[in-house]
Amino acid sequence: MLPAAIWISMVGLAISRPSLNYVESEPEEVRSEAIKRLLEVFGMDDPPAALVRGHKEPPQYMLDLYNTVADVDGVTKDPTLLEGNTVRSFFDKLHSEQIEFLFNLSTVAKSEKILTAELHIFKLRPQASLTFNRHHFCQVSVYQVLDSNKKNVSQGKKLLSSRLVPIHSTGWEVFTITQAVKSWMSDEGSNFGLLVTVRTLAGLQVDLKTVRFSSGRHHHHSKQPMLVLFTDDGRRAASLEGTSKGADDSRAGPSLPFPSLPLPPANRRIARSSDDDESGEKIPCQRQPLYVDFEEIGWSGWIVSPRGYNAYHCKGSCPFPLGQNMRPTNHATVQSIINALKLTKGIEMPCCVPDKLFSINLLYFDDDENVVLKQYDDMVAGSCGCH
């Protein structure tokens, strides 16, 4: 498969807003194939159901995480901020009156590497009681249910995480449950859910009216309990090791500014095949805008952010002699000399191509209405050079 940035450039020609003549001459099968290949770049066979967003709001945690790792166009701020390349949020399917939860993880591929799993539960404001007056802390424990018929005895459950929580506090409490999720992924039939217990420091059961946690049944969707799963799907590019010679640059994030460029007029969105500008003069190798608009592609129904992004593309000539502003490789310099001196027949001038690529992040709904944050490598041309 072609590298993602190259595919985006090619697909951009087919899916950016074209001129009227281009629309009339564009065969439907070309568009279908272009969309299919673009889905492959994003690791999907089919787009998720387009109407999901009509009645669902993404969890605030996922929105905050996206804004932490990505800029307004989705470009990764710092590749080290995110563990793995995929984060999913799952809502509880049980809606029990007790503090019990069940999460459907069927959308996670068996091939994905489980890195970290967290249970996020919202602690509500406590109700005053004698217990509340006597105690300032409670012991909150999260168990993996091993046998749904024996969850109230030690043989039917396995302790995953436990800690002291202030009785008077309110807000999100997060518990690591990675061990349970790994076992569920290895044996799907072992997923009997999670059980949370609340006890005093003396080990006595605390009245659940005193220490309360939000459930999906009675409380606002913004406080629903959820499982947050960090994975790596194995698609991280082994890529462009040559470009990561500037590995220090990559780790530090984009070294070039990403200005918010105005979109080109509709009748100029189809890239010219030549390296000439409007006056017919050769333009030097440089980075130019290539905006991918998810609404135009028909993906705005399931993608939360970004609405689109600037993939950029490289255009221009690499004439002899190549200056350092052309960011040439040694090979390109030699090739340009051979071409200029006509020492070998059929040797072309070096090509203007991306020499640094950056990743982007998508925040979207999947078919099960889970919200997914996914990072895709090599999607934005960060700079161009003669190669």
Rank of each mutant, 00 (worst) to 15 (best):
P265F: 05
R251E: 07
P257T: 02
Q286I: 05
D293C: 04
S273L: 15
S300Y: 03
L290D: 03
Y309Q: 01
R268F: 13
S274I: 01
R272Q: 11
D249S: 00
R268N: 12
D275G: 12
L263M: 05
P262D: 03
I283S: 05
Y309T: 01
V292Q: 06
Y309S: 04
S305Y: 04
A266T: 14
A252Y: 03
I303M: 08
P289G: 02
W302F: 14
E278T: 14
R268H: 12
D293N: 04
V304W: 12
P264M: 09
H313K: 08
R287C: 10
D277L: 13
D275E: 15
D276K: 14
S250G: 03
L263V: 10
R287S: 15
R307S: 15
E295T: 14
A271V: 09
F294N: 02
L263T: 11
D276G: 10
S260V: 09
A311K: 06
C314Q: 03
P284E: 13
S255K: 06
R307T: 15
G298V: 00
E295K: 11
P306H: 03
P262G: 03
L290A: 07
E281G: 11
Q286F: 10
C285S: 07
P306S: 03
S274A: 13
S260W: 08
I270Y: 14
V292T: 06
D277R: 11
H313Q: 07
D248T: 13
F294W: 05
I303N: 04
G308N: 04
G308D: 08
I303H: 05
Q286W: 07
L256D: 06
P264S: 12
L256N: 12
S255N: 07
Q288P: 09
F294E: 04
R287N: 10
R251H: 05
W302H: 07
Y309H: 07
N310W: 00
S260N: 12
D249T: 00
D276W: 10
S300L: 07
G253D: 00
E296L: 09
I283E: 08
R268S: 15
N310P: 02
G308I: 05
I303A: 01
V304Y: 13
N267D: 15
S250Q: 03
A271W: 01
S260G: 10
S273K: 13
P262E: 06
G298C: 05
D276E: 13
H313L: 11
V304R: 04
P289F: 01
L256H: 09
S273A: 13
S274C: 14
W302D: 01
R307A: 11
F294D: 04
V292Y: 02
L256R: 06
P289T: 04
I270P: 14
G280H: 02
W299V: 06
S274E: 13
R251G: 04
P259V: 01
E278F: 08
A266M: 14
P254F: 01
E281F: 10
H313I: 02
F258L: 14
P306I: 01
P254M: 10
G308V: 03
D276F: 11
R272N: 12
E278S: 12
A266Q: 13
P264G: 10
R272L: 08
W299C: 11
R272C: 09
L263D: 07
D293I: 02
W302C: 02
